[in-house]
């Protein structure tokens, strides 16, 4: 059971959240028409053992999207940030 310290709601069990994938890759601008840029963003991901930055949605809470810095090997959470204003 991972505990996630939501910046809006406080520490909650991960069962209140849904996982939203890798948060380390910058998203191309909506106007970007480069197929390679979009392919890289959508399909190419590292699968690190260790420190990882990922999206979690507080879906059964405040419904804010968060960026969680989590160790994929130990599940230790180093930091939780609102996604707003902290995008890569």
């Amino acid at each position: 059971m991972i505990r996630i310290d939501c910046p809006y709601c406080g520490a909650r069990d991960h069962t209140e959240f849904s996982y939203g994938g890798d948060a380390s890759v910058p998203r191309p601008d909506i106007a970007c028409e480069d197929i390679k840029a979009w392919s890289d963003y959508v399909f190419l991901r590292d699968n690190p053992r260790g420190a990882h930055s990922e999206f979690w949605h507080h879906v059964n809470g405040c419904r804010e999207w968060l960026i969680v810095k989590r160790d994929t090997a130990t599940h230790e959470v180093a930091a939780v940030l609102p996604a707003r204003g902290n995008m890569p």
Binding site: I30, A83, R84, G85
Partner: peptide, 17 residues
């Protein structure tokens, strides 16, 4: 319904704030 709602929130909060 749930997935679309979560996706719209994601886009508004992260891609197009």
């Amino acid at each position: 319904a749930g997935a679309v709602m979560a996706r719209l929130e994601f886009l508004l909060q992260t891609a197009w704030p």
